[in-house]
Simulated scan of single mutants.
Amino acid sequence: MKLTKEQAHKLNAIAAENFEKAQGMLDGINMVLGTEYGWLCRRVVFFDDTSSVAAKYATAHDAWANAEE
């Protein structure tokens, strides 16, 4: 299951105001959905390759841009 555009937008907005709160919310979402969303420049992203930190961020994609309506 993926985040919707609205959910990704709300997380990005909260991260701009209070990153720790947004991090806790994203941790909960990842736990419930079984996903591995992360952050890049305080925006929610997902990764194609999680084999290493370098590979993770080299394959990061903005979650809002790829979210379902």
Rank of each mutant, 00 (worst) to 15 (best):
E6I: 03
S52W: 11
M1C: 09
T50C: 13
S52A: 12
F47E: 04
E36M: 05
G24M: 00
G38Q: 04
K56D: 09
N30F: 03
G28R: 08
A63P: 02
N66G: 13
A16S: 14
A63W: 04
A67T: 07
I29P: 00
A22L: 04
E69K: 12
K2D: 12
A54T: 12
V53D: 14
C41K: 14
Q7L: 13
A8C: 02
V45E: 11
S52V: 10
A16W: 04
E68A: 04
H9F: 10
K10T: 08
M25S: 03
D27V: 02
K5E: 05
V45W: 04
A16Y: 03
K2E: 13
A13T: 13
T4Y: 03
A55R: 12
R43N: 14
A67I: 05
T50M: 15
I29M: 03
G24L: 00
D27M: 06
G28Y: 03
A58W: 09
H61C: 12
D27A: 11
N66Y: 12
A65I: 10
E17N: 09
N30H: 06
E36Q: 11
S52F: 13
E69F: 11
G24C: 00
E6G: 00
K56L: 12
A22S: 07
L26Y: 11
A15D: 03
R42K: 15
F46H: 11
E36L: 11
M31F: 15
E68K: 02
T35H: 14
N30M: 01
K10A: 08
V53H: 15
L33Q: 14
Y57Q: 09
I14D: 08
L26M: 06
N18H: 06
N18I: 01
A16K: 15
Y57N: 11
D62W: 09
N18C: 01
V53Q: 15
K5Q: 09
E20G: 04
Y37K: 01
W39A: 10
Q7M: 14
K56S: 14
S52R: 10
K21T: 03
Q7K: 09
G34A: 10
W39T: 10
F46C: 05
Q23V: 08
A63E: 07
G24F: 01
D48S: 06
A67S: 15
E68T: 08
A13H: 08
M25N: 04
K21W: 02
N18Q: 07
M31I: 07
F47R: 01
N30K: 01
D49Y: 06
A67Q: 10
G24D: 06
S52Q: 12
L26G: 05
D62H: 02
K21P: 00
E68L: 07
L40F: 15
C41A: 15
H9A: 13
L3D: 03
H61G: 01
V32N: 13
A60C: 13
E6L: 07
G28I: 03
M25A: 07
L33F: 15
H61D: 06
L26S: 08
Y57R: 05
H9L: 13
A8W: 06
F46Q: 11
Y57M: 13
A55V: 01
G34C: 09
E69Q: 09
G28T: 03
V44A: 04
D49W: 03
